[in-house]
Design a binder for these strands. Structure first.
Lengths: 154, 154
DNA sequence: GTTTTTGCAAAGCTTTTGCAATCCG
DNA sequence: CGGATTGCAAAAGCTTTGCAAAAAC
């Protein structure tokens, strides 16, 4: 069976308006992913899993989750927005693999302190920071090396 | 006369291929702006100034400048890309006013060191970082306060 | 029974690309 | 000349929106 998926859905979904099946499915899928994913990719997953949710609903739900503070959003290099379920209330930063999307929380104390200091000393109000670390994770890097080897001849 | 505009153009333009009038105009306009600006806004400025450069040329030139390290690019909240002429060769971070676009370079040593350490310890390859600080500059903040005061009644 | 939400299709955005005409060297 | 560059228009992506049908409370 396929019922071992996390489903802290019904409860959370109410936070963004009426509790509908679609919102529960979108949130459920987002939780399962455990990493950043684009609205379109999430929609593809839902459809593939036999949960035919409309793309606009996915967008609307994700936007609502972000506004409600239940999801984080970052901007990929190509401009796509990537969403991630936010389990706790803290503000974190991630190191994201540009190949496979794997995301790793990183220790962000120094950046937080740096940003706080700039906020204090700059005279600016309501200072926010967005920090995105990206790279190629060990797995993908290994695969890339193998491909490169093949390409230049065995 | 209107000849007091910075024009370190002809020389720099050569760095991205042939020195054409259009590229000189795009780079010239970007230098004059002294801050972040979108490709479309820059195009509007050029047209308004009687320099009818094609929008695609603006995009191509800005992209080339970024690749050549002569411009920085950041992503606005709405996904638009904002470009800025980079006078020196160093990699910098800015504090950008969300109201007026004013940008201030900030001291970024701590972030650089933090990012470098993550890169070293994570096992990821080719780690890059994007850091964006934004807020409301003192001028705009003052204006906003005045507006708020008026709104709630004098 | 009313009000919100959905889904589809169409539009909106920024950005990229194809290709003939044009310009630089 | 000959290849690089331009400009237009069309295409490509991601995201948003209008509106009738469906679902929630």
């Amino acid at each position: 069976m396929t019922d071992d998926r996390p489903q802290a859905t019904e409860h959370d979904v109410a936070l963004i308006g009426r509790a509908t099946q679609q919102r529960a499915m979108v949130l459920g899928a987002l939780v399962v992913v455990e990493g950043f994913i684009s609205a379109q990719a999430l929609h593809r997953r839902l459809v593939a899993d036999g949960s035919p949710v409309g793309l606009s609903t996915v967008y609307r739900t994700l936007t609502a989750l972000v506004e409600a503070g239940r999801a984080d959003v970052v901007r990929a290099a190509d401009g796509e927005r990537l969403f991630r379920h936010r389990p706790g209330p803290d503000h974190r930063h991630y190191l994201i693999c540009t190949e496979c999307g794997l995301s790793l929380p990183v220790e962000s104390g120094p950046v937080e302190r740096w940003a706080a200091r700039i906020a204090r000393t700059s005279g600016f109000a309501d200072v926010r920071h967005a920090v995105e670390l990206s790279g190629v994770c060990p797995d993908c890097d290994r695969k890339a090396d193998q491909t490169a080897d093949q390409a230049q001849g065995p």
